[in-house]
């Protein structure tokens, strides 16, 4: 592993009495692709949102590219420019066209001029295969197209790290592939990526490492072959069996096997 791009140290996060993250330590190297998996409520989305400080950690430290985000004096807006984020619900700006979605942040945040912003936007739209949709409004696009535009919007800011928060969970099954293809391309190009996902095939094929979380802690952390192929922990096995073959699951007593609370 090369120089760590993302470092998380002793991270805790509570929402009121609900402790969602109970001490997370994680390092992600430059160019590494890490998939975070786990049952809902395990804290994986909260962890991701703590990495760009959309959620303020209760305790612990987060470093990205050597800058400590949890330092109260850090210019958080400046650091976030280096961290792209893709949301489950796309969150495109509905009042702007696709092209404007890509150019407005560049112009307002990076102060790029109109021509540069337009050129960068066109490049990135081409990368996700949506050049012909430049003048469309997000509402007229399919979910898969919207998500690819959202990825292109993040890429237009020239990030060093990309965070993906369940990028395909809100998509119709037949549209998932296009988005995963774009993510695979990014991984091949050497982007540092942290992906919260339920796509086990993607995790197995593309990820350098898979992190399994449950109850606000990292249960297992290793290569896809280790974590998905030969999980050491019962909790991991249980989760994977339910995910890979939901039809075989048994009725269980609620909460009996759950260490942590819900939420996140």
């Amino acid at each position: 592993m090369s120089r760590p791009e993302i470092v998380v140290k002793g991270l805790h996060k509570s929402f009121g009495d609900n402790e969602v993250l109970r001490g997370i330590d994680l390092e992600i190297g430059q160019g590494e692709v890490v998939c975070v998996i786990g049952p809902s409520g395990s804290g994986k989305s909260t962890l991701l949102r703590c990495v760009n400080l959309l959620e303020e950690p209760t305790r612990g430290q987060v470093f990205v590219g050597g800058t400590e985000l949890t330092d109260p004096d850090v210019d958080i807006d400046a650091v976030r420019r280096r961290i792209g984020m893709v949301f489950q619900q796309f969150n495109l700006f509905p009042h702007l066209t696709v092209a404007e979605n890509l150019t407005l942040p560049q112009r307002r945040v990076l102060r790029r001029n109109r021509a540069t912003a337009a050129r960068v936007a066109a490049e990135n739209l081409a990368r996700v295969g949506l050049s012909e949709k430049a003048d469309a409004y997000p509402a007229s696009l399919s979910g898969g197209q919207q998500q690819r535009v959202a990825i292109a919007r993040s890429l237009s800011m020239g990030p060093e790290v990309m965070l993906f928060d369940e990028p395909t969970s809100a998509l119709d099954p037949e549209l998932v592939g296009d988005v995963l293809a774009v993510m695979r391309m990014l991984a091949r190009e050497g982007m540092t990526m942290m992906v919260v996902t339920h796509e086990m095939t993607f995790a197995r094929e593309v990820a350098d490492r898979v992190v399994f979380m449950d109850g606000g802690v990292v249960v297992e952390d290793g290569t896809p072959d280790q974590v998905i192929g030969a999980p050491l922990h019962e909790r991991t096995r249980h989760f994977l069996s339910r995910l890979l073959d939901p039809a075989m699951a048994q009725v269980e007593e609620e909460g009996s096997d759950r260490a942590g609370g819900a939420g996140g």
Binding site: L54, R80, R81, F87, P94, P105, R108, V109
Partner: peptide
């Protein structure tokens, strides 16, 4: 205006005020 709009703007590096003016208020 959905919360995700502000979050998307902030994650792109917009300051709170700029996110409000450029993204939230027009919507």
């Amino acid at each position: 205006v959905p919360r995700g709009q502000t979050e998307a703007a902030r994650s792109l590096g917009f300051s709170p005020a700029r996110a409000m003016v450029s993204i939230v208020i027009p919507q």
